[in-house]
Structure formats: structure tokens, C-alpha cells
Simulated assay, not measured.
Amino acid sequence: MKILVVGAGATGGCFGAMLARAGQDVTFLVRPARAAALRERGLRVVGREEEWRIDPVLVTADELAAAPVAYDLVLLSVKAAGLARAAEDLGPAVGPDTVIVPQLNGLAHLEALNERFGADRVLGAVTKMVTTLDQDTGDILRLAPLAQLLLGEQDGTVTPRVEAVRAVLAGAGIDARVPENAVTAMWHKWVFITTIGALTSLMRGTVGEINAVPGGTELATALLDEACAVAAAAGHPVPDAERQENLDVVTATGSPLVPSLYRDLASGAPTEVEHLFGDLVARARRLGVPTPLMDLATLNLRVHQARVEKTS
């Protein structure tokens, strides 16, 4: 299977490196600056008492446009702000049988990719991986063993191409699964990440710090309830057992957990506020679901985003 990984950051870089290390035909579509760094240093994955390196096959957007190649599988791993440009860049790589697996959170990207490439080429997917990019070296820091990818057709049908992709991923040591409904799985992850993102960004602390003070646990619970209500109104209710698992995480005492969105906020970096929160509260309004706490978190993040954009 000929695989194109769009982006060689913390998530796409690690998945792509795992596939390449397993012998798959993997090419990374990257920006010229990232390509230069990777050609000089290689793609390195470090952490968990391990370190490994590959010499990645790289292509830039200009090179791909000059010599189009149709790939069997595209792993699209970019931030929401880079989605439009990434979709334009990978156009020459998409043929009639190309399967695109987006590795973004939320739902808005699915609609954008469906419009650009057709829903028949785009799978629903949920990525779970704990990695970050070392800003000094460009190395991928793997913070936990989790490397999971849930994927499936958007309409919930089981097809041979999904199983073929799953088998390739599994062969590289990736925990690849086909859920009953991939779009529902995307909704459920969206519920969790907006809950923990809203909690930590509003309170400017770790999960443990927030739950250590009066009112912290009540706030976490109320945020989760709002997000679950939106998912249920959209036709993707979170099962009681999964809701309890999420609640246990966001109300854990002593937990040092913070999401990547909070780390971006604390460092003064842009966040995916519109993709994750703006879209959620807009859907809530259309569905008639009140979300006052999520609205407050969205406003908070929008103020931060406006400040970042003003100074950049």
C-alpha cells in the first residue's frame, strides 16, 4: 500500500514512522523548512526508554504538484488552521481509489474534506496518541505507549477497504480498530476533549488542581453534561459507562493531566478554538441545547486567539 502522511508533527510523524519502520511504502508531505530539518537529522521518535530514527521519504507541495502521484492511503495529520492549505496541497495525491483518514478532532474537517474530495474518499477516524514535538530538536517525544486509530466508513457500513487499511496499521504496531460507527466515535472523543479543554482553560490548572478546590468537581461534571447533551441531540449519545469513564478522568484528585489545548494556551500559542469549541456551540444553538459553560469557555479562548493573532 502506497501511503502519504500529510504532516510530520507529533501525531502524523509518529504514525508514519511506525509504518515506515514496519516496511510500508511511506512518504511524508511536509513544508520546505521541515523537509530540510528532516533530511539533515532524520525523523526521530524518543521517549519511554526508547529512541529510534528513520530516514523519511519526503515530498513538498511544489514537488507533488510538479509530479502528481496517486496514493492508496492518506493520513491527514495537521492542525485545523492548516486544513485548507493541506487539502489543496494533497490534491495531486488523490486518485479515484485513494482513501483519506483525517487525524483531527471535532467534526468540521469531515464536512470540509467531503466537499473537497467526496465523502466516498474520506473515512471517519479517531486518533489516540500521547506525543509532543520537541521545539528545539524537532524530535517526536512519545509520552505514553498509546497508539490507537479507530476508523470506518462515514455511513457505518463495513467495507473491504477499511479492513485493508486496518490490517496495514495493525501490522505496524498501531492499535487499529473498526468501531460500530466511526462518526459516533468522533462525537464521543469530541465530548471528552471539549470537556477537559474547557475545564483546564477556564480554571488555568491541571485536573488535580481544579478538583482540589471547592466547586471544581461540580464544574467538571457540568461541562461534561453540556457536551453530552449536544452529542445526544445530534444523535450520538454517550453511553453511561463511557460517560462515567470520562467523568472519572476529569474529576480525578491529584491528576497532573492537561490537554494539548491547555498547553497551547499557557504558552501563548494559537488554539483550535473555532474548530473544537466554536463548532460545538454553534451546533448546540441549532439543536436547541443550552451550553452556558461551553459558551464561556469559547469566549475565553476567542479572546486569547484574538490576542495571538494581533501580535503575530
Rank of each mutant, 00 (worst) to 15 (best):
R116Y: 05
P239V: 05
Q244F: 00
R39W: 01
L73H: 03
S77F: 03
L146E: 14
W52I: 00
K310Y: 02
A220F: 14
L296F: 11
A86V: 01
G42Y: 08
T127S: 13
R263A: 04
E245A: 15
F192T: 00
V5S: 01
E274P: 06
A252I: 01
D139P: 05
A231D: 10
V273M: 03
M186C: 14
G7M: 02
G124T: 11
T200R: 06
V308R: 12
D225E: 15
E180A: 15
R31C: 04
V289T: 11
T98S: 09
Q135N: 05
A70H: 14
R21Q: 13
L257N: 11
G138H: 02
V250I: 15
P270V: 04
W190N: 05
T184Y: 03
L29D: 10
T221D: 14
N114M: 00
V258E: 05
R285Q: 13
A37R: 14
G47Y: 08
A222F: 09
V162P: 11
G124E: 12
H188M: 06
V183K: 12
G118K: 10
A65D: 12
G156H: 08
I3C: 01
R116F: 04
V162D: 04
L83Q: 08
P102V: 11
E245I: 07
L29G: 06
E209T: 05
P239W: 10
G16K: 02
D55C: 09
V57R: 15
G171K: 08
A297W: 08
A233W: 10
G42D: 06
S312M: 08
L19R: 09
G152Y: 01
A36G: 07
T159E: 10
L141V: 15
N105T: 02
L280T: 07
A33D: 15
W187L: 07
P92A: 09
A81M: 12
V99M: 10
